[in-house]
Nucleic acid binder design. Sequence first.
DNA 1: GTCTATAGATGGATAGAC
DNA 2: GTCTATCCATCTATAGAC
Lengths: 201, 201
Amino acid sequence: MNTKGKILEKSLELFNHQGVHNVGVRDIARALEISPGNMSYHFPKKEDVILALMEKMSEGNNICFDAYALNEPSLQSFIALYEGLFTNQYAYRGLLIGNTEFEEVLRKRYAYTKTYEKRVTQLNNILIGLRSKGVLQLSEPDQEMFLSFLAFLGRSWIHESFIYQQDTSAKEIIQHYIKLLKWQLSLIATEKGKLQLAQLA
Amino acid sequence: MNTKGKILEKSLELFNHQGVHNVGVRDIARALEISPGNMSYHFPKKEDVILALMEKMSEGNNICFDAYALNEPSLQSFIALYEGLFTNQYAYRGLLIGNTEFEEVLRKRYAYTKTYEKRVTQLNNILIGLRSKGVLQLSEPDQEMFLSFLAFLGRSWIHESFIYQQDTSAKEIIQHYIKLLKWQLSLIATEKGKLQLAQLA
DNA sequence: GTCTATAGATGGATAGAC
DNA sequence: GTCTATCCATCTATAGAC
């Protein structure tokens, strides 16, 4: 792997374990046994590292959505989608947590709002698909509320897990939120949908 | 007001508007037209300011729970409880957002886990009360899941609102999450409970 | 209690040699 | 591309006068 790739890999590792604000350019350089100056050659600013990682995460999310689109809509594949998304987000958890420091930068240089709107649209279409398959029963306003819930869950679970479940394994953490999602689905599932959920357990 | 009180007040104001990590001891001193040295006299470390504010917030939450306990359990007063809690949390939003920097300190000096466990117990009792009033229909596992949802909502809504709804007014933000909570309640309410919810709108 | 002045540490970023 | 050396800004915290 080239130096640029190594920097990204090691940075993420350190960010995840110590938090973005506790990891300086020096720390990354030391961990890779390269010089701080060399870091700056590849990434002139620290925010450039963060930005590159954010984009990698976003690509990972894209892959999950693309994989979902290949199957027939079902609650099983919907849950699988979220397991994929959560696993990917967890891999970048360091960025998603202590990012208030770089929030302004991200707002300027990373298409925050645009990405978010894209995701909401994707999710909305997915819900329409699930309804047309007869596994979810949602009125229009219900669908809007469920979308709010999904948006909230997708953005915030990593925060909660970080603060309140630090000693729990990744797998357990992810399963906790998957369980919450399944429960939510069970409240709005049709009989056919409930059958699909039962097959998951 | 004494200097100590003024420092707390102004600190919170600045934290809320600029984020904890963007507000230095100097900034607070300048805003109050006192010296940085004087700041250190009242609060030897920056974390002492944060800790004092966290405790004030916690007291505010206590007041909300105490007020709830005075009434007969109902979904109306449950919603009122959450409106109170959200309003209080919003007033301290700066602390609840960019706190990864002081997270370790808080973990040591502020009874994070203890406070959290206390809240969960309180909420659990509240749910039992609502069930006994016949407004919620929840099996045991359902109650556990709903408790997970409430815990998640209570801790994470402020994060989401900060990142994704920066240009929205406090009132609108709070109402968004109250709406989400109402919808959740409607999914698990009895007929009697649904009547109570209908009276709210 | 409040001030001024400054210590002391850290971290991002650059200059210039190799 | 990579290094060493260093600049410069920033921030917390302290010392000591008033």
